[in-house]
């Protein structure tokens, strides 16, 4: 099972194991990670699953889709070059060890 580390805004880190094929957003909800809201359940509507991908992983999480790009314009915390919607990141073995930082606010 790939493991993912979520680093909260206050630098607290939580490492959890993910099911292959689940999204990073879903993994966070399953483990009760505060800081990811995921109001639309991964439907790419709400932009409340915003994360900052650790730079060393940026090349591996895939590209930002056109719809995701527009949604990222609406995130509550600052959009940065490494901003992603975690419901659009699908976990695979290749992402074992992924590090995602959580923004200050989701709404």
């Amino acid at each position: 099972m790939p493991s993912i580390t979520f680093i909260h805004h206050d630098d607290r880190a939580e490492t959890v194991s993910a099911n292959d094929g689940d999204s990073a957003m879903y993994t966070a909800l399953l483990h009760g990670i505060d800081g990811i809201t995921g109001e639309c359940g991964g439907g790419a509507v709400c932009a409340t699953c915003h994360v900052y991908v650790d730079d060393s992983w940026l090349g591996k999480v895939g590209a930002v889709g056109a719809d995701e790009d527009e949604l990222l314009e609406g995130v509550a915390s600052e959009r940065l070059p490494n901003s992603r919607l975690s419901c659009q990141i699908k976990i695979t073995e290749a992402l074992d060890g992924l590090v995602l930082r959580l923004p200050e606010r989701q709404v």
């Binding site: 909800l29 109001e39 359940g41 439907g43």
Partner: peptide, 26 residues
């Protein structure tokens, strides 16, 4: 933890106005 409730539906038809509803409610 309300996530996953189906009051706005789920899947491809999940309420397209959910953000308007939540904004008003909040």
């Amino acid at each position: 933890k309300t996530s996953g409730h189906v009051g706005f539906g789920s899947g491809i038809h999940m309420c397209v106005g959910q953000l308007v509803a939540r904004l008003e409610g909040e």
